[in-house]
Write a protein that binds this DNA or RNA. Structure first.
Lengths: 114, 114
DNA sequence: TACTATGTTCGATATTCGACGTACGACGAA
DNA sequence: TTCGTCGTACGTCGAATATCGAACATAGTA
């Protein structure tokens, strides 16, 4: 039988026009997911296992799913890796200034609460 | 006996410096709470029962609590009413541009999704 | 085939969340 | 005191969520 080229779930990504701000806010209200997002805000692209978080791989996978379904990140296949990027342009197009304001707010918070 | 001046829980409000952006994002990621916030964004002060939401009073009270503990709203006593305001200046001081960006994003979303 | 690396899915468990009904407290008026 | 209004606290329920371990799937290599 002809092997399908994409046996994996094909990584559904929500369209830019369908982004829901409540979903985005919910996705970013979690510490682990915020760390992922903040990391991608600086680095253009990273593999799943290279984020500075201390959770089980399965848990991390779950958080990626939440971020992906909210439209915050994009993931593409590269060999046996899954490379993750921030959907910065899409978010900025749909919700101008939102991502910058959130990341800026997060940076302030990190610096003070210590 | 001297009647206590504040028999009610005294409405704890978090200090501006202690505002946590993750708590704020979580508070605003709920539809009912977003409606409350959006309403207060235009109106300076409202009583609890005057918001355009369709939930039971006890549920509404729960949402006010979440918003209050996240530092999004302020509530003060006025007779047997509790008047609610948006902590706009505090939020803007701690997280410049965040509230405006979120409300702006919410307005865009409302206009499209139907 | 076998092995390794990477990441996901599944099952199980514990927690949180949103909603409600009920009971109660505080205020204002009679 | 008694009543009605406004709003909260508590308990409860079902659903969603977070977390983990274990098994699975894919890609690459030997």
């Amino acid at each position: 039988m002809p092997r399908s080229h994409q046996r994996r779930p094909a990584l559904i990504h929500v369209a830019t026009a369908d982004l829901d701000v409540l979903d985005v806010l919910h996705a970013l209200s979690d510490p682990t997911r915020m760390i992922i997002t903040r990391t991608l805000y600086d680095d253009p692209e990273r593999a799943c296992g290279t984020f500075p978080v201390e959770v089980a791989p399965s848990t991390l996978s779950h958080h990626f799913r939440v971020l992906r379904e909210a439209g915050v990140i994009h993931q593409r296949e590269e060999g046996n890796r899954r490379l993750t990027t921030l959907r910065r342009a899409d978010l900025d197009e749909r919700f101008p200034g939102l991502l910058d304001a959130i990341v800026s707010a997060y940076d302030r918070r990190s610096g003070e609460g210590g």
